[in-house]
């Protein structure tokens, strides 16, 4: 058994840790927190509330695999939801155009940040930190006060539920309630699958790993390092736009305070999911489980009665800290094995 673990690659080892942690946590929740966690809907609610986070985390994993980082996604989410809300309500526009707005915002951020990082060699953290503050500031400039969207077509889309066949639970009145997911979850799952395929089996996907693992050797292999970095930021920001729209679809309002700390949650999910900050190692499936672990622990904390706002922040931070240290140890293990 130990030998097997030793022979595992970093990526597989970290992925296994993540999945095991998630299942242990969920089983622990069922055992200690009672039946609430046994209901299928509890699980699907985790998906419903975190669909946007899954999409954002996919983008962040990609950037982190390429060796960069993007902390502007939370601000972008707020900006997208505010712009779409203003457009839908004040201008009475239609839903399809609002989706295009979201994509356009994502593309705009991607182009600017990507070219600054890739072609001018500026630290991604500084660029995206500025991007984050810019997005938050712009949100306030677009509209100061938070408000709910009353657009009929949008509301219909927001209320659309997709029932899961064969799953459900009996509520207190004895009525069978089928489990459901929102549209955002479907979008998120499609993106997870697409990203997984892209990273695993396409030339572009493999070049992300190559650039993140070792820039110099990637260059020697004939990969266009700058363009690869550029693409990673474009895709991440586009996913930020889509994620922002999914978030908007879930909450149905625009506010400057939306998605506060979403970038942190997305980074935490990616790291918990086994994406290395140093680049070159990562897995989208792991990221997916990372989001689930993160939200499960939030649910556990909330249902344990520690529902004050500060506990969530502290839990996420300590979990992130733990996984960062684990990564650091894995890296040390790799180095010592090379020395041997």
């Amino acid at each position: 058994m130990l030998k097997k673990i030793k022979n595992m690659t970093d990526s597989n080892l970290l992925l296994t840790i993540t999945i095991v942690v998630f299942f242990l946590m969920y089983i622990g929740a069922i055992v200690f927190q009672g039946k609430g966690f046994l209901k299928p809907q509890t699980f699907f609610n985790i998906l419903n509330t975190n669909a946007a986070l899954i999409i954002l985390s996919c983008g962040l994993s990609l950037v982190m695999i390429t060796g960069g980082i993007d902390i502007s996604v939370g601000g972008m989410t707020a900006l997208v939801s505010m712009c779409c809300a203003v457009y839908l309500d004040y201008k009475g526009g239609n839903v399809v155009v609002s989706m295009l707005i979201a994509l356009a915002i994502g593309l705009g951020f991607g182009l600017v940040q990507g070219s600054l990082v890739a072609f001018l060699d500026i630290q991604p953290f500084i660029v995206t930190l500025a991007g984050m503050f810019f997005a938050r500031g712009m949100t306030t400039i677009v509209n100061t006060n938070p408000f709910n969207v009353e657009n009929a077509a949008f509301k219909a889309l927001k209320e659309t539920r997709i029932l899961i066949p064969g799953m459900g639970s009996i509520n207190k009145k004895g009525v069978y309630v089928p489990a459901y997911v929102e549209i955002g979850v479907v979008v998120a799952l499609i993106i997870v699958i697409l990203m997984f395929i892209m990273l695993k089996w396409t030339k572009l996907g493999r070049s992300f790993y190559a650039v993140g693992g070792n820039k110099q050797s990637a260059l020697m292999l004939g990969i266009n390092v700058k363009m690869t970095k550029f693409y990673s930021h474009i895709i991440c920001s586009m996913l930020g736009g889509i994620g922002g729209y999914v978030y908007f679809l879930h909450v149905g309002s625009g506010a400057a305070t939306h998605a506060q700390g979403a970038e942190m949650n997305a980074i935490a999910s990616s790291i918990i999911g086994g994406t290395m900050l140093t680049g070159g190692v990562g897995n989208i499936i792991g990221t997916f489980f990372g989001v689930l672990s993160l939200s499960t622990i939030q649910n556990i904390v909330a249902s344990a009665g520690l529902d004050q706002a500060w506990w969530t922040g502290i839990t996420i931070a300590s979990m992130l800290c733990l996984f960062l240290v684990v990564q650091s140890i894995v890296m040390a293990r790799k180095k010592s094995s090379i020395k041997k």
Binding site: Q123, V127, L129, A130, F133, F134, T140, I141
Partner: peptide, 25 residues
């Protein structure tokens, strides 16, 4: 300028600064 909107202006200043101090530029 509203205090919440300040970061947007400052972000532009940061970007300009780092662009001009970037080695390639």
């Amino acid at each position: 300028v509203q205090s919440d909107a300040l970061p947007a202006y400052k972000a532009v200043v940061v970007i300009l600064l780092v662009v001009f101090s970037a080695p390639t530029v």
